[in-house]
Write a protein that binds this DNA or RNA. Structure first.
Lengths: 305, 305
DNA sequence: CTGTTAGCGCTTTCAG
DNA sequence: CTGAAAGCGCTAACAG
């Protein structure tokens, strides 16, 4: 920096102010210094800058699963544009996750934390809170609201007989969502399946064995939806003419196959989450939660009842 | 750090040495200092450390597409374990990519660069080279070698009549790979398709329209393989009894559906790439290329001819 | 093996 | 609006 200062005939302090857009420099000086710096290919050293200035210009991004890639991509883009470094931590498997939280390696290194596609345990949140910087958690959102969207779409298409396939282990009841929209519940049309294509095929078999076929199926898992899709087609059923199908998950899969699905605008949500976090950093420093909101991607697997 | 030094009754220099595992401290002192530091929840400030020490302990990870998530996850894990920060840059769309290379924002900030799932243009490589740190590019590997693996597997199963589906736009010939393994080439069994499920279905139709069906199909794309799979099954063909199917890509898709595929051990390759890069950083500082190597994941879509 | 002494390259008062 | 000076929190010789 002092080289640039010398070349521009000013002091280092002025170069610093000029390059960072700080007030207190005449426009002419700023322009000139900026130009000299560019010519000399000079860029401020982040380490020294944050050491001296106390700012860090870095955000830690925690993610459970790199699968939801677009969320990450959106966040990264927005952060880079805002001049922040992205320190990535993939906390997918238990080992790396506990290793991370055991001794959170972020002390005095980041201005904030963004937790994507990861549900933090109480103790984990506490560990992050100790950093003293805002934490923004992007919550995967409510299955209930996703379901509402799917049901609404099917009802609009005239469906009344809707089966719901949940993940095994889910013991919560979602009947109310259907009931709230005026549907009758038939117990045999609530099914559980492991989140695999094979599971979906079995579900389809079960459905076909029933005394009456629903006119639509909603699956919580994309893999299951695909299994149902393939099994029904192999059985000669047409989709969507004979049966409509909606998935509540599995963005990539459902898009590839053309299955109507509830999904998030992940990239945009990532950007938005960053905006919230940066706002908090500049503002009250509060931690918060960003709820992912769902949208319906209507594709070829749904039609009139 | 001086607080810790005082509390431990030593100098700051000793604390520094002890905490970083530098030689020149007695084991007893190191243990004691470490303990005091932990008790005081002290961690070395990276900024100050790298400013003073000249080391940076950070690697820039460039990735074109977060899709190949496991590569990234593997690399991140290995880097974290080695004590390096991961600065992530997602260079998916043209805008962010050119923005990045226009003014590579990494000067004096990283010890090395890891380029994953991204093919660097000449000028981009040059821009990175200017950083003066090693660059390790992970190359997606050769379609030819992936194909060789698939063909070998099918030949082992007794197949001689193999169709190959390439991406539209690929004008290179891969006949030699088949010929080298003693197969005869039938021109009508080389097909081109857009990398979509629908494209795959069309390919299947074309195959079914032909005068003779091959006993096996190799598809360069996972989506296409899925399309072929679904179309054939709907047509009443059994897979693998009537026809075997291998995909050269589409890890997630093919795994979900149970299609035999050539794939990389992405997580492990990511770790390995990191090892190579760190080696170069500590060693000759040379940039290099890590070729992804392929493996065959045999699933239910292939069987004896 | 340990302490002392200079910086690392910036930013920030405080004067001018 | 600009410059001089004093650190930011560490590490790296250099002594002892």
């Amino acid at each position: 920096m002092s080289d640039v200062a010398r070349a521009a005939g000013v002091s280092a302090a002025t170069v610093s102010r000029a390059l960072r857009g700080e007030p207190g420099v005449s426009e002419a000086t700023r322009r000139y210094v900026t130009e000299v710096a560019k010519r000399m290919r000079y860029a401020i050293a982040r380490d020294a800058s944050s050491l001296a200035g106390g700012r860090r210009y870095a955000i830690a991004v925690l993610t459970g699963d790199v699968g939801r890639g677009d969320l990450l991509a959106g966040a990264e883009g927005a952060l880079r544009q805002a001049g922040f470094d992205v320190l990535l931590y993939v906390l997918g498997d238990e080992g790396s996750r506990s290793g991370f939280f055991e001794d959170v390696p972020l002390g005095r290194r980041v201005d904030g934390v963004l937790a994507l596609s990861i549900t933090l345990a109480e103790s984990e949140s506490a560990a992050l809170a100790e950093l003293g910087v805002p934490v923004l958690t992007v919550d995967d959102g409510d299955l209930r609201s996703a379901l509402r969207l799917a049901v609404g779409h099917l009802i609009d298409l005239g469906h009344r007989d809707i089966a719901l396939v949940l993940a095994v282990g889910v013991d919560e009841s979602y009947d109310e969502v259907l009931v709230a929209q005026g549907l009758e519940i038939r117990p045999e049309w609530t099914l559980w399946s492991s989140p695999t294509v094979v599971g979906g095929e079995q579900v389809a078999d079960a459905l076909l064995d029933g005394e009456r076929l629903p006119t639509a199926v909603i699956s919580a898992s994309g893999e299951v939806a695909l299994g149902v899709f393939m099994r029904l087609r192999r059985d000669g059923r047409r989709i969507p003419e004979d049966l409509s199908l909606v998935s509540l998950d599995g963005q990539d899969l459902t898009r590839a196959v053309g299955i109507t699905a509830v999904e998030g605008a992940l990239r945009e949500e990532g950007e938005q989450a960053v905006a919230e976090l940066l706002g908090s950093i500049r503002g009250d420093g509060e931690s918060s939660v960003h709820e992912l909101s769902w949208q319906l991607a209507v594709r070829e697997s749904t039609g009139r009842a």
